Simulated scan of single mutants.
Amino acid sequence: MSASIYGAARSVDVEPVQVPNSGKWSTGLFDCGEDPSNCFATFCCPFITFGRNVEIIDRGKTSPVEATRTYYLLGMFGCAFCHSFPYRAKLRAQYSLLEEPCGDCLVHWCCIQYALCQEYRELKSRGLDPSKGWAANAVKMNQNGREPPVVEQGMSR
């Protein structure tokens, strides 16, 4: 996916934590043991982790309930990866991460739970906590002297 597809979302990007953009993910795709509770939750209910990740990646514009519902419904037909891999691409674009170990679509198609866990860990390593939702993360950024992007009224967790 090219960065131009996500141009509108990038116009409000605010890096919550200054981490050098080496292009490397903070953890590997199969490093689920670094966060065992998220690993367990993701392997049992991947749609919940996906919803949490999406809310943070979209900076509060997409509700986790909406993302979870769509993922779950598509998952019933075996094609949840069609909805999930663009968010991996968007996360990579926000933090200048490499597309590894292979293309985003293939990673989500073959290893969707591992990919969701890695994306969750990446957000946490950037100082964001997907389990708390966008509003709580925005307050935290504001308290730390960073200005979170403005999100339209009516968006809630």
Rank of each mutant, 00 (worst) to 15 (best):
D13R: 12
D13F: 12
V14Q: 00
V14E: 04
P16F: 09
V17M: 10
V17K: 09
V17F: 06
Q18I: 15
Q18K: 11
Q18V: 13
V19R: 14
V19F: 05
P20Q: 11
P20W: 07
S22L: 14
S22T: 15
G23C: 09
G23H: 10
K24L: 14
K24I: 02
K24G: 03
K24D: 15
W25S: 01
W25R: 03
W25L: 06
S26K: 08
S26R: 07
F30G: 07
D31P: 08
D31R: 10
C32Q: 09
C32P: 02
G33N: 09
G33F: 05
G33A: 14
G33S: 14
G33P: 00
E34V: 15
E34D: 11
E34A: 13
P36L: 07
P36Y: 00
S37E: 11
S37W: 12
N38V: 15
N38M: 15
N38D: 13
N38C: 07
C39I: 01
C39D: 09
C39V: 02
C39W: 02
C39T: 11
F40K: 14
F40I: 05
F40Q: 14
A41T: 04
T42G: 04
T42V: 06
F43P: 04
C44L: 14
C44D: 14
P46R: 13
F47S: 04
F47V: 00
I48R: 08
I48L: 13
T49W: 00
T49P: 02
T49N: 10
T49A: 15
T49Q: 08
F50C: 00
F50G: 00
R52A: 01
R52N: 03
R52P: 03
R52K: 14
R52F: 03
N53H: 06
V54Y: 02
V54R: 03
V54N: 05
V54E: 06
E55N: 15
E55F: 02
I57T: 04
I57Q: 02
I57R: 00
D58N: 10
R59V: 01
R59T: 00
G60H: 00
K61N: 12
T62N: 03
T62L: 14
T62Y: 07
S63E: 09
V65M: 08
V65K: 10
E66T: 08
A67M: 05
T68M: 02
T68C: 08
R69C: 03
R69L: 01
R69N: 08
Y71Q: 04
Y71R: 01
Y71N: 05
Y72W: 12
L73F: 07
L73H: 10
L73Q: 14
L73G: 02
L73I: 10
L73T: 10
L74S: 00
L74Q: 07
L74Y: 09
M76L: 15
M76K: 12
G78L: 12
C79H: 05
C79Q: 10
C79R: 13
C79M: 12
A80I: 01
F81C: 10
F81N: 01
F81G: 01
F81Y: 15
